[in-house]
């Protein structure tokens, strides 16, 4: 008797904001079918909320008239959809070949040390998440990182320190 009918039906309008919905609807217009906007919709909601929690995932699925299992399959396929909370700032350090040739590992170790976290983790204060990224297309200006969506090129220890100071200052003030 354990499948009593769910009492309340999920309605995405109660979860997603009007802004999110209108952006998603805008994307839907571009495709023959609604589920085609899945990746766009995930990115939209993520841009508002930082990451995709289960509730948002279910709401997006409802909005796009697809099953949440299927949307989960999509969300977990792509590198830049976060299904776990991330910090206020996200650092994506390029770890591909040109950056490797420019010894990105030194930068990586330095970042890890200074933040006290491994790649894939978030600082305890929830400020910074450190992630690796495949080639950022800045091979001529290696090593490079993407900080909150902005490219930062020709990294060295000094410039990394400067960035971290700024991020920390930002979170304090």
């Amino acid at each position: 008797m354990n499948n009593a009918i769910p009492i309340t039906q999920l309605d995405y309008r109660t979860v997603l904001t009007d802004a999110e919905i209108s952006e998603i609807e805008h994307e839907c217009e571009q495709y023959e079918i609604r589920p085609a906007a899945a990746i766009d919709a995930l990115q939209i909601v993520q841009s508002h909320r930082g990451w995709i929690d289960d509730e948002s995932l279910n709401a997006i699925a409802d909005c796009l008239q697809m099953s949440s299992a299927e949307l989960e399959g999509v969300a977990t396929f792509y590198n830049h959809i976060y299904r776990q909370p991330v910090g206020k700032h996200v650092i994506h350090l390029c770890d591909s070949i040109s950056c490797w040739l420019h010894d990105f590992q030194i930068i990586a170790d330095h970042l890890s040390d200074k933040l006290g976290i491994q790649f894939g983790q978030t600082t305890e204060d929830g400020n910074i998440t450190l992630l690796p990224n495949v080639c950022l297309g800045c091979c001529d200006k290696a090593p490079a990182m993407m900080l909150d969506g902005e490219l930062v090129e020709n990294l060295n220890i000094a410039s990394v320190d400067e960035i971290l100071d700024k991020l920390r200052g930002g979170s304090n003030g």
Binding site: N3, L57, S67, A69, E70, E72
Partner: peptide, 21 residues
């Protein structure tokens, strides 16, 4: 509709979105 392929590379996972019948 409640069973799907999830994740990718050699971590592909076949299951539901969450536990459940």
């Amino acid at each position: 509709s409640d069973l799907s392929a999830q994740a990718s590379k050699n971590h592909v996972y076949f299951g539901r979105q969450c536990d459940g019948t």
